[in-house]
Each structure stands twice: as structure tokens, then as C-alpha cells.
Deep mutational scan, measured.
Amino acid sequence: MFKRLMMVALLVIAPLSAATAADQTNPYKLMDEAAQKTFDRLKNEQPQIRANPDYLRTIVDQELLPYVQVKYAGALVLGQYYKSATPAQREAYFAAFREYLKQAYGQALAMYHGQTYQIAPEQPLGDKTIVPIRVTIIDPNGRPPVRLDFQWRKNSQTGNWQAYDMIAEGVSMITTKQNEWGTLLRTKGIDGLTAQLKSISQQKITLEEKK
């Protein structure tokens, strides 16, 4: 169930391209415009997507990853294993993690069937560096609404905000991946996880038929 919630949630996290980005210092504006741009692209490019579902990787690479804190999220997933990894191991892992996100997020976007969304009203940021933004996803086919909290983090150097995690039903996506990959990290280390991520990233994206 959580895996499905995570995939549905990713439908609204794909941010804007650099040329049309919203105010990078306001995570609420980023979330709002990102959702609108993403849904528009999914709707307008269905012919290309249906002809070649792996085209979704391109959308992810162009529109999402430049505005997601990939390395920060990847380091959180590694936890204690990050500090013990060599620079070469980290570089290989982050490259594999990025390719994994292209496949995983692309597969999530393949679930698009006309969903709509509501974003919580903007709250004062103050001096906060981590801000959760509640998004409610509404399914046109009558499924119950899904309420999610996207975690946005302020870059201490640039002042810009980027998304790095999502919490559904009190469970963090980062925590879920830590639990899912924990045994592999304990037995085969970061190299074993890197190899698995490379394998997963090679899987073809498949479209979910409308139910």
C-alpha cells in the first residue's frame, strides 16, 4: 500500500525546468507551479508516452532531478554507511541512485490517469530550513484521497528550496528505503546496493492501464 502511495505522490513532485522555475526561495510556489507544469506535460505528451513509456525517463531527467536534492536524499538512505564509504564508492552510488530515480519516478508518472491535487495554504517560513507541505491527491475514479507531506529543505548556501522526502501515513519514503535496503547494505555494503540500483534502473517502464 505504501509503495502505491509513494508512486501516486511522485506525480506531483516533478519540479519546473530552470527556464520557467518559480521563486526558488518559496517552496509553496515551487510546489504549486511544479504540480501544474507536471500535470500539463503528462496530459499533453501522452502520444509520446504511450508510444514509448521510457520517454518518461527524459521527462524526469529534464523536469524533476535538477530540483530534487538527489545527493542529500541518497546520503540519508545510506545512513551510517555513508561515512564509511570511499569517495569513489559515493560517486558510483550517487550515479546509480540518480539512474534509479529516473526509472522509479518514471514508473510513478506512468500512473497518471487524470488525477488532480490540492496544496495546503502557504504558511510563514520564518527562519525554518525544513518545511512540510501537505498535498491532497484526488483520484477521478473514486479512490479515497491521498494526503501527503512533502519535505522541502532550504539550501544554506543559495537560499533555494528543494524537495527531498515524502511522508505518507506517518511513514517517510527515506525511512522506507532504509528499511528495504538495510539488509543488503549490511551483507554486501554500498557496492552491493550500487549494483542492485544499476540493475533496477535497467527495467523498462510500463504503463498502468486505467481501472
Rank of each mutant, 00 (worst) to 15 (best):
1 M>K: 03
2 F>N: 01
2 F>V: 07
2 F>I: 12
3 K>P: 01
4 R>S: 13
5 L>W: 03
7 M>C: 04
7 M>F: 13
7 M>D: 01
8 V>N: 01
8 V>R: 01
8 V>M: 15
9 A>F: 15
10 L>D: 01
10 L>H: 02
11 L>R: 01
11 L>S: 01
11 L>K: 01
11 L>G: 01
12 V>P: 01
12 V>L: 14
12 V>H: 04
12 V>M: 13
13 I>D: 00
15 P>M: 10
16 L>W: 13
16 L>S: 07
17 S>T: 13
18 A>Y: 15
18 A>T: 14
19 A>L: 02
21 A>L: 08
24 Q>N: 14
25 T>A: 08
25 T>V: 10
26 N>E: 06
26 N>H: 07
27 P>N: 03
28 Y>F: 08
32 D>T: 11
32 D>I: 10
32 D>P: 11
34 A>N: 05
34 A>V: 08
36 Q>E: 07
36 Q>N: 14
37 K>C: 06
37 K>M: 09
39 F>A: 02
39 F>S: 04
40 D>N: 11
41 R>G: 08
41 R>P: 04
42 L>F: 12
42 L>A: 06
43 K>G: 14
43 K>P: 05
43 K>H: 06
43 K>W: 07
44 N>A: 11
45 E>G: 06
46 Q>D: 04
46 Q>E: 05
46 Q>V: 07
47 P>D: 10
47 P>Y: 09
47 P>A: 08
47 P>T: 13
47 P>F: 08
47 P>C: 08
48 Q>H: 14
49 I>A: 09
49 I>W: 03
49 I>M: 08
49 I>V: 15
49 I>Q: 04
51 A>P: 08
52 N>F: 08
52 N>T: 13
52 N>P: 00
53 P>C: 11
53 P>L: 06
54 D>P: 08
55 Y>E: 09
55 Y>A: 11
56 L>S: 11
57 R>D: 10
57 R>F: 15
57 R>V: 15
57 R>I: 13
58 T>K: 10
58 T>R: 08
58 T>N: 10
59 I>K: 02
59 I>M: 05
60 V>T: 14
60 V>M: 11
60 V>F: 07
61 D>Q: 14
62 Q>A: 12
63 E>D: 12
64 L>V: 03
64 L>I: 02
66 P>K: 05
66 P>T: 06
67 Y>P: 01
67 Y>L: 02
67 Y>S: 06
68 V>D: 01
69 Q>P: 04
70 V>W: 05
70 V>C: 14
70 V>A: 14
71 K>A: 04
72 Y>F: 05
72 Y>V: 01
73 A>T: 03
73 A>D: 04
73 A>C: 03
74 G>R: 01
74 G>P: 01
75 A>G: 06
75 A>W: 01
75 A>F: 00
76 L>G: 01
76 L>Q: 02
76 L>S: 03
77 V>I: 04
78 L>A: 02
78 L>C: 07
78 L>E: 00
79 G>D: 02
79 G>R: 02
80 Q>S: 07
80 Q>E: 02
80 Q>Y: 14
82 Y>N: 03
82 Y>P: 01
82 Y>A: 01
83 K>M: 07
83 K>C: 02
84 S>W: 08
84 S>G: 13
84 S>A: 13
84 S>N: 12
84 S>L: 11
85 A>E: 08
85 A>I: 05
86 T>G: 09
86 T>K: 08
87 P>Y: 06
87 P>C: 04
87 P>G: 11
88 A>L: 14
88 A>R: 11
88 A>I: 10
88 A>D: 13
89 Q>S: 11
89 Q>L: 08
89 Q>Y: 06
90 R>T: 06
90 R>D: 04
90 R>M: 02
92 A>L: 13
92 A>P: 10
92 A>V: 13
92 A>F: 08
94 F>Q: 05
95 A>V: 12
95 A>W: 07
95 A>P: 14
95 A>F: 08
96 A>G: 12
97 F>N: 15
97 F>D: 05
100 Y>Q: 15
100 Y>C: 14
100 Y>P: 00
100 Y>E: 14
100 Y>S: 13
101 L>Y: 07
101 L>S: 14
102 K>D: 14
102 K>M: 14
102 K>T: 15
103 Q>P: 15
104 A>N: 02
105 Y>I: 01
106 G>E: 04
107 Q>R: 06
110 A>L: 15
110 A>H: 15
110 A>S: 11
111 M>H: 12
112 Y>Q: 02
113 H>A: 01
113 H>K: 03
113 H>M: 07
114 G>H: 07
114 G>L: 04
115 Q>L: 02
117 Y>G: 06
117 Y>C: 03
118 Q>T: 15
119 I>G: 08
120 A>W: 15
120 A>D: 06
120 A>S: 14
121 P>S: 14
124 P>Y: 12
124 P>W: 13
125 L>Q: 06
125 L>C: 07
126 G>T: 12
126 G>W: 12
127 D>I: 12
127 D>A: 00
127 D>H: 05
129 T>D: 06
129 T>Y: 10
129 T>I: 10
130 I>V: 01
130 I>P: 01
130 I>S: 01
130 I>F: 01
130 I>Q: 01
130 I>A: 00
131 V>N: 13
131 V>C: 06
134 R>Q: 01
135 V>K: 04
135 V>S: 02
136 T>W: 11
136 T>E: 15
137 I>K: 08
138 I>P: 13
140 P>Y: 14
140 P>G: 11
141 N>I: 10
143 R>K: 03
144 P>A: 00
144 P>V: 07
145 P>Y: 04
146 V>W: 10
146 V>D: 00
146 V>G: 03
146 V>K: 08
146 V>T: 06
146 V>N: 06
147 R>V: 02
148 L>I: 00
148 L>P: 04
149 D>C: 04
149 D>H: 06
149 D>P: 03
150 F>I: 01
151 Q>A: 04
151 Q>N: 02
151 Q>F: 09
151 Q>I: 04
153 R>L: 01
153 R>D: 01
153 R>E: 00
154 K>D: 03
155 N>K: 01
155 N>I: 03
156 S>G: 03
156 S>V: 01
156 S>C: 02
158 T>G: 08
159 G>V: 12
159 G>P: 14
159 G>C: 11
159 G>I: 10
161 W>L: 03
161 W>I: 00
161 W>R: 03
162 Q>A: 04
163 A>Y: 12
164 Y>K: 03
166 M>A: 00
166 M>Q: 04
167 I>R: 09
167 I>D: 00
167 I>V: 06
167 I>P: 15
168 A>W: 06
168 A>S: 00
169 E>Y: 04
169 E>A: 02
169 E>G: 01
169 E>K: 04
170 G>W: 01
171 V>T: 00
171 V>C: 00
172 S>Y: 03
174 I>K: 15
175 T>H: 08
175 T>P: 05
175 T>N: 04
176 T>A: 00
176 T>D: 00
177 K>D: 04
178 Q>W: 07
178 Q>S: 07
179 N>L: 03
179 N>W: 06
179 N>H: 04
179 N>Q: 09
181 W>D: 15
181 W>T: 15
181 W>G: 15
182 G>W: 11
182 G>H: 06
183 T>W: 11
183 T>D: 10
184 L>M: 07
184 L>G: 05
184 L>C: 12
184 L>W: 07
185 L>H: 10
185 L>I: 15
186 R>P: 00
189 G>S: 07
190 I>K: 06
190 I>F: 14
190 I>Q: 05
190 I>T: 09
190 I>D: 03
191 D>S: 05
191 D>H: 06
192 G>S: 13
193 L>E: 13
194 T>I: 06
194 T>F: 07
197 L>E: 07
198 K>Y: 07
198 K>S: 12
199 S>D: 14
200 I>P: 06
200 I>W: 12
200 I>D: 12
201 S>L: 10
201 S>C: 15
202 Q>K: 10
202 Q>T: 10
203 Q>S: 09
203 Q>F: 13
203 Q>T: 11
204 K>Q: 13
204 K>G: 12
204 K>L: 08
205 I>Q: 06
206 T>N: 14
207 L>N: 15
207 L>R: 14
208 E>L: 12
209 E>K: 13
209 E>F: 09
211 K>R: 11
211 K>G: 12
211 K>Q: 14
211 K>P: 09
